[in-house]
Simulated assay, not measured.
Amino acid sequence: MVTESEQTMAELLGQRITTERKQQLLSQQQLASGICAQSMISSLEKGRYIPNAVLLAKICTKLHISMDRIMLSHYPEVNALASFNVTIKALCDQHDYAGMLTYLATDGLVNQLFTDQDLQIYYYYRAVATEQALHATQDSLRDLHLAYQYTHPTQKTLMTPTEILILASIAFLETKPTQPVATIESGWTHFKLALTAIEQQPVTQYDENLNSLYYLFALRLHQAHADSKAITTIDQGVEWITNHHSHYMLVDLFFLLAQLYTANQQSPEAQRALNQSQTLSTIFKTIPYRDLER
Rank of each mutant, 00 (worst) to 15 (best):
Y214T: 05
E208G: 15
Y124Q: 03
F217N: 12
Q155L: 11
V181A: 14
H152F: 14
A197V: 09
G187A: 06
L165G: 04
P202Y: 11
Y123H: 11
S140Q: 02
L221P: 00
A168Q: 09
E131Y: 14
Q223T: 13
Q149M: 06
F217T: 12
P180G: 08
E208T: 15
I170S: 00
L144R: 01
I170C: 04
A168F: 05
Y215D: 09
H145Y: 14
S169Q: 14
Q132G: 06
A197P: 02
H222W: 10
L210P: 01
P180L: 07
M159P: 00
I166L: 06
A129D: 06
A171C: 10
Q201E: 10
Y215G: 11
L221R: 01
P161I: 08
I166D: 01
R142L: 12
Y125W: 07
S212V: 13
T154P: 02
H145D: 12
Y125P: 04
Q149E: 15
P202T: 10
T151M: 05
A197T: 09
T178P: 01
A218H: 00
L213A: 04
Y123R: 05
R142D: 13
L165N: 10
K192T: 15
H135R: 07
S228H: 07
T175S: 01
K176F: 10
Y124L: 10
A147T: 06
T175Q: 05
T175G: 04
S186C: 12
A136T: 11
T162Q: 12
T130H: 05
P202D: 09
D227M: 08
V128Q: 07
F191Q: 02
L213N: 03
D227H: 03
A133T: 02
A136I: 08
T160C: 04
S228V: 14
A194F: 08
Q149V: 08
P202M: 09
L221V: 02
I170E: 01
A147M: 02
D143N: 14
E185Y: 02
A197M: 04
S212C: 15
S212D: 14
N211R: 00
Y148M: 09
Y206F: 13
A182P: 01
T196A: 13
R126T: 12
L219E: 07
G187P: 04
A194N: 04
S212E: 14
L193G: 03
I170N: 00
Q149N: 15
Y124H: 11
L158S: 05
L221E: 02
Q155G: 06
Y125I: 11
Y214N: 04
Q138K: 06
E174A: 07
H135I: 13
V128K: 07
A127Q: 02
T189G: 06
E163R: 10
E131Q: 11
I198H: 04
E185N: 08
A218R: 00
E208H: 11
D207M: 02
Q138D: 15
T130G: 11
E131N: 15
H135P: 02
I164T: 03
